[in-house]
């Protein structure tokens, strides 16, 4: 399998605080990888570095062999990396469908082409029936899925998901897990930042664990949860799946 994204010795500090320290990992095409760790571990910073929303202090990010860490977010998106936001950010005054159309304008200027892509994205996350609703009429899980649909409209090769399951009930989360698995089967590579361990175990084929900004473990979920360092710093001794 080919490597889609490579993160090499990535560091980022804010003033004196080192949020991400010398982190390296790579993403295989067509897989779901999870980035986990306790609060303040640097997951979101790491995520923003990959998405181009932040510039690294040192280190590199390579996407399909090209260095992207100096590119602004819109360029990163046009290269094939789409992201969602941890706090959902629908464009308030636009309908669900219109929200999902924006991403398509990164590769087309044809409005009806964008509209059919938007329907397709909404379809794949199960929101097609609510296409003409206003975004403030959506429930939280629907809004999270709208974020994903917006990102999918950009035709990404890599999808970055920032805590899409946070604040959801288990049944709602299960629905999202199904959507993600289907997307990965379709060949999409996914990196998700996630708190809910049960979901990580279920969907991710690889897990990267951050603690105090540094990577402390990486591997298949089964191995990672057995790692004493991970147990001590994050999951807590006596964690059982």
């Amino acid at each position: 399998m080919t490597t889609l994204l490579e993160v090499e010795n990535l560091s980022r500090s804010f003033g004196g605080l080192v949020a991400v320290k010398d982190v390296s990992f790579s993403l295989r095409a067509g897989r779901i990888t999870a980035l986990i760790g306790p609060n303040g571990a640097g997951k979101t910073t790491c995520f923003n570095l990959v998405a181009g929303a932040l510039k690294p202090t040192s280190g590199r990010v390579l996407f399909e062999g090209r260095q992207i860490d100096n590119s602004p977010p819109e360029t990163v998106c046009r290269m094939g990396i789409a992201r969602t936001f941890q706090i959902v950010r629908p464009m308030r005054e636009m309908s669900v469908l219109e929200n999902a159309m924006i991403g398509a304008f990164s590769w087309t200027r044809n409005v009806s082409e964008a509209r059919s892509k938007a329907y397709e994205s909404l379809e794949s996350v199960g929101l097609a029936a609510k296409a003409h609703a206003r975004t403030d009429q959506l429930t939280l899980p629907d809004r999270k899925m709208l974020e994903t649909a917006k990102a999918l409209s950009t035709r990404p090769k890599l999808l970055l998901l920032d805590e899409v399951m946070a604040g959801l009930r288990p049944t709602e989360a299960a629905g999202i897990v199904g959507v993600l698995q289907k997307l990965a089967e379709g060949g999409l590579t996914i990196l998700l930042v996630e708190h809910v361990m049960r979901i990580v175990m279920e969907v991710a084929s690889r897990v990267v664990v951050l603690h105090h900004g540094a990577k402390i473990a990486e591997g298949p979920p089964g191995e990672v949860v057995a790692d004493p360092k991970v147990l001590e710093s994050y999951l807590g001794a006596g964690f059982h799946v």
Partner: peptide, 13 residues
Amino acid sequence: RDDESAARALGVR
């Protein structure tokens, strides 16, 4: 207009 940084993340220059 609604959210500049969200728009940028969706590829809007």
